[in-house]
Design a protein around this nucleic acid. Structure first.
Lengths: 182, 182
DNA sequence: ATACTGTTTGGTAACTCTACCAAGATTTGG
DNA sequence: CCAAATCTTGGTAGAGTTACCAAACAGTAT
């Protein structure tokens, strides 16, 4: 494993576990087992580092998400919302992109990919939603996950399940697999 | 206006315009026109300061939101999603609460209040949604706003309008249609 | 061997941030 | 009017951060 990969892996882990504020050069370098000054050899500025970590994190999440054919897609969605490290990572990404316009393209790609996999998941469930429905489905999942991260209470946990159930109820017939859309 | 109020107002402004990372004692003190050391007189620790600013910000947003009987509630919702300073503030609050459990109660109160006002807005529109529908409505609005903050692109702006329209279409018929569909 | 290229390290300058302290300035209560 | 409480400031210790630099190191081609 190259030093560069070790650095990126350490950065992703840090971003997952402690959020954007903990993503500093000394901590990443220490976690990767190299000197801090050596990190700047690979990533001269903090923005380059952040961009590389963001893309790595995005790729990780997508391959993990797309690479696993879930037994129950609805369960997979629920688990994804409950998985705080990823929500934390995404929140950090959004906050960083808000302040650093060069990151927004990466965020856009991530949003598109996630939405595509949500559409795929829904079609596996027997739904055939149109684009606007996938949009609100995606948005609602993001919103539920964010509101859970900020509260981390029994109530917010419960809302994840209730919200998901309600979302599925809003879509066209669940019991008719392969049902065509108008 | 007392010094304490000036400090809180400056903190809210900073949180709105530059996000959580910019919320430091020196900057708030400078914006409020007092010495930095004096800030610690009122707020000995950073967490106390952050909590006070968060609650002030929450109260501001709610009173402004609830205090104005909007001509068109749907327009108000669209405007709220597009208002980046508030989204930025909420994102910072969530991130802070994620790392600082003592903030989560304030976030919970905020979430409840916002959801209540959304329900009120929807009933003004002629809808009579049940609780789970308000939940997904709220979640979708949060998600749309967050995804827009992280991209700030023409596409994300467009999704705000499309998503809102789709959300309203998912709810039961308006019993008193005040405005014809565009 | 020698020169060249890329890797790695320790050290550090310059900056920012939080928290504290001693000492004035101002207001308030008796 | 005076004393006590409250407010306010400059200064600073100590920790953390980014970014840079000179120098040691390793491999590879000449």
């Amino acid at each position: 494993m190259s030093v560069k990969q070790r650095l990126l892996a350490a950065g992703v882990t840090l971003l997952h576990e402690q959020g954007l504020a903990a993503l500093t050069q000394p901590r990443i370098a220490k976690a990767a087992g190299v000197s801090q000054s050596h990190l700047t050899y690979y990533f001269p500025t903090r923005n380059e580092l952040l961009l590389a970590i963001a893309e790595q994190s995005v790729n990780d999440a997508l391959t993990r998400q797309l690479g696993s054919p879930e037994a129950d897609p609805a369960q997979a969605l629920a688990a994804a919302m409950r998985f705080l490290p990823r929500v934390r990572m995404l929140l950090g990404l959004v906050a960083a992109a808000d302040q650093e316009p060069s990151l927004r393209e990466a965020v856009s790609r991530l949003v598109d990919h996630v939405r595509q996999s949500i559409a795929q998941l829904l079609s596996h469930l027997g739904y055939a939603p149109e684009a606007p429905q996938v949009l609100v489905f995606h948005a609602a999942i993001v919103g539920l996950a964010v509101m859970n991260l900020g509260r981390q209470s029994p109530q917010s946990e419960a809302e994840l399940a209730v919200g998901l159930r309600q979302l599925l109820a809003l879509l066209p017939h669940p019991t008719a697999p392969g049902s065509p859309a108008p």
